[in-house]
Design a protein around this nucleic acid. Structure first.
Lengths: 128, 128
DNA sequence: GCTTGTCCTAGAGTGCACTCTAGCAGCTAA
DNA sequence: TTAGCTGCTAGAGTGCACTCTAGGACAAGC
């Protein structure tokens, strides 16, 4: 059960158990043999977690968000505040990334020019 | 000397020595007492390194780039190729970040709506 | 001449986020 | 009935990128 779920989630079984241990995903029910039984619904949550992860939300914060989620309606406000904070971080990261993207483009052009100049001066040398 | 340089670079002295040890920054000349003497020119390189770092280039790759840089003209081509690869990674990261940014906005709106509904139903309860 | 501050080296320690091992149990197909 | 696959737990190990400690030297100011 955990193997199939992990494959569908794009995680290793190690990671799925680890996420459960630290409270990132709720402990699922078990079958008669003590094995974890997952519902497909949980995949959406995993997908969201991966997006938070990929955009640099700290493990501790993801765990906190997961705990809020289990508490229901009373945590709407705090969850929204966490999302707002993360949104601000993402906007800042986007700006920084865009800045470096521009720099990369300029540097690539520079190196193209330098390479061309080098080729030219080598041809000169060969001819001279 | 290292203290002043580290402050100007926005790094700790530990980190500056560590970067030198792994080859990220060239070993500077030493004064009569064996202390490192930095030229201000190196700050530009540190700044560039920090941008590569902040945009997720691996330490090993940064070290490789630094080594190419010391070898001069003959490595223009390989340096450009590394920058192109990093540029591609940055473009992908930008797209992913934008996607999550949009998701955050939608979720924030959702929670605002949920909070408003909750407030309404509480008022109803108070009145009823 | 002693304190304070900065520097040096080698190497140990930290925090994060997994990732794997050991040792064992249950199911299924050959 | 035994080999192979998957599952279970507790706890150890990994890789990255720093970050700090220990133990010592020198230079300036009180």
């Amino acid at each position: 059960m955990i193997g199939e779920f992990a494959r569908a989630a794009g995680l290793s079984t190690y990671t799925v158990r680890f996420y459960e241990k630290i409270g990132l995903i709720p402990a699922p029910p078990r079958d008669s043999g003590g094995r974890r039984v997952y519902s497909k619904d949980s995949l959406g949550w995993i997908h969201f977690l991966k997006q938070l992860n990929a955009t640099g939300m700290k493990q501790a914060d993801r765990v906190h968000y997961a705990a809020l989620r289990l508490r229901g309606e009373e945590t709407y406000r705090e969850r929204r505040q966490m999302l707002e904070a993360h949104y601000d971080k993402i906007r800042a990261d986007l700006a920084a990334l865009q800045k470096t993207s521009d720099l990369m483009q300029r540097k690539i052009s520079l190196y193209q020019r330098l390479e061309a100049e080098l080729a030219t001066s080598e041809k000169d040398t060969n001819n001279g």
